[in-house]
Design a protein around this nucleic acid. Sequence first.
DNA 1: GGCAGGAGGATTGTCCGACAACCCTACAGA
DNA 2: TCTGTAGGGTTGTCGGACAATCCTCCTGCC
Lengths: 218, 218
Amino acid sequence: MLTATGDFAIDRRSTTDQVAGSLRRQLFDGHLTPGTPLREVDLATAFGVSRSTVREALRTLVAEGLLTRAPNRGVVVRVVSPVELEDLQRARHVLETGAVSAARPAQLSALSDALASYEAAVGTGAPEAVHAAHIAFHQAVVGLAGSDRLSRLGAALLSDLRLALAAADRAADDAAHQLVEHRHLHDLIAAGDTVAALEELSRHLHQDHAAAPGMPPG
Amino acid sequence: MLTATGDFAIDRRSTTDQVAGSLRRQLFDGHLTPGTPLREVDLATAFGVSRSTVREALRTLVAEGLLTRAPNRGVVVRVVSPVELEDLQRARHVLETGAVSAARPAQLSALSDALASYEAAVGTGAPEAVHAAHIAFHQAVVGLAGSDRLSRLGAALLSDLRLALAAADRAADDAAHQLVEHRHLHDLIAAGDTVAALEELSRHLHQDHAAAPGMPPG
DNA sequence: GGCAGGAGGATTGTCCGACAACCCTACAGA
DNA sequence: TCTGTAGGGTTGTCGGACAATCCTCCTGCC
């Protein structure tokens, strides 16, 4: 049977979805900084599509939480305040520790794969790749629970983080050390030492939070 | 200071949001059963709005996961398969137990309030109200973690459940017993007995799942 | 000088009409 | 039985239009 991969893959996404996808990528890559207003007509001409199409794309991005809409004033790139970041971190804590507690052995290989990719990314040194791989690792942690739905929630959560990271680009600050920590975490989980893993994860997340951009509490 | 409540409240939502809201309500109330296709023109004439408006509303509902879009074939009311329900239940488990573990005393009153509303709803006997209150209670459980973001994720998760419940309306099947269980859970949490609470919650969720509509595994 | 109030431009929210692309079904033909 | 085609219904995208709203600037008055 022929599957639509490789040479046979064609893009069957609607124009709207392509626009949304492009914007999403630009958001994650930090090409659009938080607070930037997104004008409908500007985007329409930039993409060479109609305003309706742009509007639909924006609406999905708003629903995803990447953009913020102010009625009659348009949408802006979501700005994650320090308070929200803290809130987000708390949510992550629940999700990731919960997933570790409910970890299913079958999902372990995905975590190992994520770690390998992470190591590879750090090897290349490209900060964006490191970010992406870092996020992907934590995504895999959430995936341990073996629930698609939960993984999707984790993705939503981490996308916000990715936004914040892309903006306050404190790039690969001691990526080496970060990597060691993650490997340690991975090993504990793989060894089945849930208690130690949970402790390490808690510590890891907490420190992550402490290292967050130290703006004055909004 | 005058706040926009009571007699002073006016509806400042956009037409699109009102349409989305109306559809959302109808979905939760089970007036639209899973699998039903939603035709754009039909909705437009029914609501007395333009097709563009309907399209935008549908798009947000799709992003929320309440509707499913098949390219060039329109959107249908999301149907949650038994497999997905199981998946969902696993996600709930992680979220709710995680929230209980990370419970903050400040959020306890909200849980108590939810329980009170639940009791009241069971008192009236209206099955829809009972459903809503039941969901609200579990929502409050997630809220224990004190993270807005997490609560919103919980809402997304539970909305699916609400869909499934609205469809397979096994209404207030022994609502009394259910209520007792929830009260028990509440008391354990309130007493600070996290371990027992977690155990009870696990049991509760598991049984919930077992009681789910027993269609053949899709 | 500072502030209420209005003019003007920019932008969003909504509508309408149009048309190509697409999907599904039914039917005819090999 | 399978292939190909015709037809109608629906979605996806476009362009243009206009009222409502917001923002900025300017005016005039105290």
